[in-house]
Amino acid sequence: MLTLQINGKSVEVDVDPDTPLLWVLRDVLGMTGTKYGCGTAECGVCTVHVDGRPVRSCSLPVGLIGPRKAIITIEGLQADPVAAAVRKAWLDIDVVQCGYCQPGQIMAAIALLKKIPNPTDEQIEAGMSGNLCRCGTYMRIRAAIRNVAAAQGATP
């Protein structure tokens, strides 16, 4: 049994330690908001936060995490003001198309904005270029992140 802290709750899972967090979330705990895309940390659709860092859950064996790291998934952001601002920005300019990559994009964007509240375009691209979108919503993701930054700058 491995103990994990997921979205503020302690959960026990009975899996081999080499099991990637992604499949524990999706197939053991039924939390399917975090997606599978490549399995090799190349596309970012599986991004979750571990102690605030955006990590690719497809390449993170649960045995490496331990019981004290705080794992936050797309389902665990209800009380997070930055997440609310990011989602609002996404809705305001209709970022999504097929939507499959968007949970990962949003998790990456939230982590970026928490680290750098007012990122430059270069910082946005450095923080987001690990997340692929096949529909090509990059223009709007960029714009949405700029909008969040601008709104946060206006009301510090």
Binding site: A41, E42, C43, G44, R56, S59, E125, A126, S129, G130
Partner: peptide, 10 residues
């Protein structure tokens, strides 16, 4: 640019 896309993921 290539590093940010292809490498920084890990």
């Amino acid at each position: 640019m290539l590093y940010a896309g292809a490498c920084a993921g890990c």
